[in-house]
């Protein structure tokens, strides 16, 4: 029982990170019907931005809660700016073209970011400084939760609540919902769709960057290609929950994270070795899509003839 609780805590920790990244995928897909393959790399950019901020501003040698907040917010702001720049210079020119073209542009963008970072920071992993003290708190029995895990839960829940507030209670959120419902009608109603799309990219990128900084507090090794697999799994999480659906992305992220750690912990009992860890997300995805093509919370859209 203790180990099960422990596995579940670890799974939900990773799951919260997946959820934060999945939110960006799902919002962009909801509005542009674009699989933004570069989004996983924004998560990496966020981690690096945090790393640079923390080391250059001296928070690394003098850890404090203030330093952490500055690093987190700074990394989110930098990533938001980069996300908007990507949208403006790469995606906007190809928006009207076919799906294949936009997809290849996104793949190209992903490669560009990865190899620019490999070029400037080299491929060797770096160690992210510990900005907050990391202690293990014993819950009951042998199950423990570390403060960095608590931090991940608290910050991601705060950000998700904030996102929910932005989308459902503010004017720009209303505009986002209108654009995702029908971009042309939204334009006719006087909504500046270009601005709304840019804002969506900024929002999604900021969340992914927060995920990057939080992960780096939990697992301090950062490298330029860290966004590939994490991004792919977060994307799977978004599709699993029903792409374009915001609560779905969170649910999908938590499910994938939990399933992954449970397979590592218990898979050997049912004949799945722990090396299948990375296949679990895809297997779940395929099963769900075949049984419920719109995802867990997605609504089935009827095709008009």
């Amino acid at each position: 029982m203790d180990t099960f609780v422990q596995q579940l805590i670890n799974g939900l920790t990773i799951g919260s990170i997946y959820a934060l990244i999945a939110l960006g995928y799902t919002m962009v897909y909801g509005i542009l019907r674009l699989i933004n393959f570069a989004h996983g790399d924004i998560y990496m950019v966020g981690a690096y931005a945090g790393f640079i901020l923390a080391t250059s501003l001296g928070f690394a040698s003098d850890p404090s809660a203030f330093g952490f907040v500055v690093t987190l917010v700074g990394a989110m702001a930098i990533a938001a700016a980069i996300g908007m720049a990507i949208e403006r210079f790469a995606y906007r020119p190809v928006r009207k073209f076919s799906k294949m073209t936009t997809l290849i542009t996104a793949i190209g963008m992903s490669l560009l970011i990865e190899y620019l970072f490999v070029f400037f920071f080299s491929g060797t992993p770096r160690s992210f400084p510990q900005l907050l003290p990391n202690d293990n708190i014993t819950l009951f029995g042998n199950a423990t939760i570390s403060t960095s895990q608590i931090l991940i839960f608290v910050v991601s829940i705060l950000l998700m609540v904030l996102l929910q507030y932005i989308i459902y209670k503010t004017k720009i959120g209303k505009a986002m919902r209108a654009v995702s419902f029908n971009i042309n009608s939204a334009k006719l109603m006087g909504i500046n769709t270009d601005f709304v799309i840019a804002f969506t990219f900024a929002l999604g990128s900021a969340l992914a960057a927060a995920g990057g900084v939080l992960t780096a507090q939990y697992n301090p090794k950062i490298e330029p290609l860290m966004g590939i697999i994490t991004g792919l799994k977060a994307f799977v999480a978004a599709v699993l929950g029903g792409i374009g659906n915001i609560p779905g992305a969170v649910l999908g992220g938590l499910l994938i994270g939990a399933a992954e750690t449970l397979v590592v912990g218990y898979g050997s009992y049912i004949g799945i070795p722990s090396t299948y860890r990375d296949a679990v997300a895809f297997a779940i995805l395929i099963l769900v899509l075949l049984l419920r093509p719109a995802g867990l919370l997605g609504s089935n859209v009827q095709e008009k003839v």
Partner: peptide, 8 residues
């Protein structure tokens, strides 16, 4: 990657 994006 740049050539790829520019081609698109």
């Amino acid at each position: 990657a740049l050539i790829l994006i520019l081609t698109m």
